[in-house]
Amino acid sequence: MLRNLLISLLLLSFVYIFYNLYVGFTPKTELDGIAAHYADKGAAEIGAANLVTAVVVTYRGFDTLGEVTILFLTASIIGFFLKLTEADENKVIIHRGTSELLATSSNLLVPIIILFGIYVFMNGHLTPGGGFQGGAIIASAIALAILANPNMHINHQIILWVESISGVVFVLMGVLGILLAGGFLDNRILPQGQFGTLLSAGAIPIIYSFIGLKVGAEISNILEKYQKSQKES
């Protein structure tokens, strides 16, 4: 009884705070401050047609580096927690048998979905999408493959190498920015190119592609760990 009372008291105070915030809020009609600068000069400075990509990769590139690090840490901690014993590792998952439809369609679709993911992160500076979305699409292809064949063996060496090389290249591009251009993760180490084409916006397509590969490898790793944990009795 006391518990319910306390919960409702806490929720009511939250509602009161939010109500005051809501009443005091006036929607923007014009961009101001730093956002106005991004909208005005972003295309000229960075050369990316997608301003969100310009912010994620270059203006706030340091945040993205931290984000990728957090994802890497999560993947490692999950790997540590869901580690199987030697005996469990060699078990075979007994399942009802995959339906013909799922097996055939996964064989057909997995390469196409991976290709689409690569398309999404290579065009991150022109169209909606980018490294995170492309990585998630690649991971969903891996998820489909795992669902179709639960005992599929995924080569850990490949995931490990893709992940480490992408991370190292990402940081190296950032350091090159200090040496050759204005600062860490500056994209002007490569020529800007024609606005709106694939090879434009300096280093953004390269950096975002490696972010995509890294995110895809990490999420696939997490999914594979969860799949393996089903073996444990």
Partner: peptide, 21 residues
């Protein structure tokens, strides 16, 4: 649109899959 894509693929796709595992 960027955020919508991410939310649809990660937030509602992969997260639900992990819950079911």
């Amino acid at each position: 649109p960027d955020v919508a894509m991410t939310e649809a693929s990660i937030g509602s796709g992969l997260t639900t899959l992990i819950y079911f595992y």
